[in-house]
Amino acid sequence: MPTLFAFARLLGLQGMVIAAVLVFYEGAPGLNYLTPHLRFVPAAGPLLDDLAQGRVGRAARTAKLSERLAWQEKERRWQIATQAKVDAIEDGWNEERRRQAANHMDAIAELERAIADEKSNRSGGGPACDPALPRGVSRALDKIGR
Rank of each mutant, 00 (worst) to 15 (best):
G145L: 00
A128Q: 00
I80F: 13
K85D: 14
L65C: 00
L141A: 05
K64L: 12
G145R: 00
G136K: 13
A114Q: 02
Q83W: 02
K143D: 04
R99W: 05
E95P: 00
E67R: 14
R68L: 10
I108T: 05
S66Y: 14
A132H: 09
W78C: 06
A114W: 07
V137D: 04
W71Q: 14
A116Y: 03
P134Q: 02
R139M: 13
K74M: 14
P42A: 06
G126D: 07
G27M: 01
R122I: 07
W71R: 12
A52T: 04
W78Y: 10
K119Y: 12
T35F: 00
N94K: 10
C129W: 14
P127L: 14
L38G: 02
A28S: 15
E112H: 11
W78D: 15
D50C: 10
D106C: 10
H104P: 00
Q83I: 00
P131Y: 05
A114S: 12
A102K: 15
E90I: 05
V86I: 11
L65V: 04
A132N: 09
Q72F: 02
E96F: 05
R58Q: 14
Q79V: 01
A101I: 07
R135A: 10
H37T: 15
D117C: 03
L31G: 04
A102R: 15
G92S: 03
N121S: 06
G126N: 03
N103W: 01
R135Y: 09
Q100N: 09
A28Y: 09
T82W: 06
A101S: 09
G145N: 03
P29G: 10
K74W: 12
A44S: 09
I89N: 08
E67W: 10
Q100L: 12
K85G: 10
A52D: 02
A102I: 14
E118D: 14
K143W: 04
V86S: 08
D130H: 15
R139Q: 15
C129H: 15
E118N: 11
L141V: 00
D91F: 02
V137C: 01
G136N: 12
D130L: 14
D49Y: 13
I108K: 07
L51R: 01
L38K: 05
N121K: 06
V86Q: 05
A59I: 05
L34Q: 10
D87G: 01
I115W: 03
L69N: 10
G54L: 09
Q79L: 12
E67C: 06
S120D: 09
K74I: 13
